[in-house]
Design a protein around this nucleic acid. Structure first.
Lengths: 352, 352
DNA sequence: CTGAAAGCGCTTACAG
DNA sequence: CTGAAAGCGCTTACAG
């Protein structure tokens, strides 16, 4: 009895198609230089035997490096928010480097559209095989993304989406719902009649749709819950503590019944500092796991922080690109981060 | 100028030691048939160049599969908690199967020590190269773990630790702190004088140190915060709803000032059902993202659920074993999951 | 357009 | 006790 030899892989395909494995390889990778007839024959066989390439052999053979380029805001003195996505990216980088993936970092200044364009130009000059982008300036980002898509480079957005531009996936927050959650948390610590003040602090408020969406969610929650607490909004365009202080104190004088503040971004620590200085005990809810925020959480000036796993966003983005390029799996088109609540009793175990 | 050729791996070791790569391989795998002198020389070089074997090449050469064995509780009709770790394990399994990793599943019955021993025996008979264990019965688990460690098989614990037994890592909750968090959440919705009742529901309460630790954390929070709310504990050993109902109603009659309940495990839905049936509007905090719990969260009967990422526990455990075996990196000796707070405004984005 | 050969880093017989 | 050679499944020049 003859033992049946079960060949697999390119060899078996080559045997069945009566060609060399070199030709099979050309078909598998859609390289040109194969006659249509041969190509079809081989593709048929590939389907027939449901061929799955052995990625390990492929990796071993290529010894090729893959360049991943990332373009995110620079960590600024003002906020260390972007250290967290960066940490996640670096951690993922450690894990995939054995597969020949090399990460190149490009940073831009959140205050400068020019710096974004420059960094993007440099990035494209490096011919990356995959790109991670945290877009901020819609117009400039859109222009860059169009070029990326023309070049057919897989692209992942984190933190902010550019919904009209195609991408492998978006990984980040769903803002409206996080505003609703902020409202629920705020409602826990106030009475029926208490007034609430929403504080937006941003130099570029008109372009910051993030804050607007959160505010919408916040107000919707109170509406839907039939809570009648008056809600006013205070917009502050100058982020320096002096002017924030002036604005907040003025607003408090005009609205003496305000018992709770909701700060729509990570600048909640500024408000906390001001309230503390003036011995105010208002309820305070804001965003993001920053050291300066955590300190006020610990001493009770901030009640809750909402956080959407910035480190995980960076980590998952790199892994999504890796899994895509290595045929492991395809991500959902949008991955919304869980909306985490941080208090002084669980911050210690929150790992980003 | 001669280009310096940087060989790596077995070839470089062989070159330096002036032997063949076959001999190097023998030393690397501690196979016999090598003179002590040669062995020492090679080992020295291995240390010198900090040799890290290329696991992919090794796998390709051996054509061997790696068997990962997992031993966790069976998903029961009573609670679907264990579906979540299982989902995480399966997801990780999908991702690593291309590296030749095959996962074999063994399940035991949480009500039967015998079933645990049987499943463990079967598992060991399969000669796995890595093991994931969710221990429940301390004595039985300890015995099995001792054998696993004698066999030098890498082992990861999830959900529960066996602190005295060595393992690659433990991935799971820190119970005391989650009890503290439950206390903080409870304190949000009660007044000064209100009484609180802690409810432990377990057939095997004396052995369930989980519940005890959470209760300790809970009480410690009130102590530390100088809150004077009276706290009583109700232990219920019969998990059927009828007897829970009887116990709870009796306890409520005896303690009419109770305004809040803390249920120390996922059986909080039973209490929710009872409270709803009797039109009670007590504050209610409990554990775990189960369908039955979420339903009561949505309709407001449960205020908060605490959850410690059961899916991620399973996922991370498999990935930790994979990364260990493939020399990607070594985990911390204990990985404590973040302590997540689930409300009706964020449960939709919680993905396990 | 196609094939033959060498090689990725490791393991496995086989020969001596 | 040790080495030379073949092979894992794929990719990459090179030759024709």
């Amino acid at each position: 009895m003859i033992k049946k030899v079960e060949l697999t892989g390119v060899k078996e395909i080559a045997r069945r198609a009566n060609v060399s494995i070199g030709t099979v390889d050309r078909v598998i990778h859609n390289r040109k230089g194969v006659s249509d007839a041969t190509r079809q024959k081989i593709n048929l066989i590939i389907e027939e035997i449901n061929y799955q390439p052995n990625k390990m052999a492929s990796l071993l053979a290529t010894k090729r490096n893959l360049n991943f380029a990332i373009l995110i805001p620079k960590v600024s003195a003002e906020t260390d928010y972007w250290t967290y996505p960066l940490n996640g990216i670096e951690q993922a980088g450690e894990e995939v480097k054995q597969f020949g993936i090399i990460i190149q970092y490009f940073f831009y200044d959140l205050d400068s559209r020019g710096s974004f364009n420059e960094a993007a130009e440099e990035l494209l000059n490096c011919n990356p095989q995959a790109i991670l982008l945290a877009p901020s300036f819609i117009e400039e980002s859109t222009a860059v993304v169009k070029r990326i898509n023309e070049l057919n480079i897989p692209l992942v957005f984190i933190n902010s989406d550019l919904p009209k531009q195609p991408s492998l996936t978006y990984i980040g927050p769903e803002l409206y719902q996080s505003g609703r959650l902020a409202a629920q948390l705020t409602s826990l610590s106030i009475a029926h009649e208490d007034e609430i003040m929403i504080i937006n602090i941003s130099t570029d408020l008109e372009n910051d749709h993030h804050l607007v969406r959160k505010e919408q969610g916040f107000r919707a929650y109170f509406n839907d819950s039939k809570l009648a607490n008056p809600i006013t909004t205070l917009n502050i365009y100058d982020t320096h503590i002096g002017s924030v202080e002036k604005s907040v104190l003025e607003a408090l004088q005009q609205n003496p019944n305000v018992q709770a503040f909701f700060v729509t971004n990570s600048r909640v620590n500024i408000v906390a500092k001001i309230l503390k200085k003036h011995n105010k005990t208002h309820s305070l809810v804001g965003y993001d796991f920053l050291k300066s925020n955590i300190n006020y959480l610990i001493d009770g000036q901030i009640n809750f922080l909402i956080c959407q796993r910035p480190k995980e966003q960076g980590y998952l983005a790199i892994m999504a690109l890796y899994k895509h390029l290595f045929n492991i799996n395809e991500p959902e088109k949008a991955i919304y981060m869980p909306i985490d609540i941080i208090t002084k009793e669980n911050y210690r175990f929150y790992n980003s």
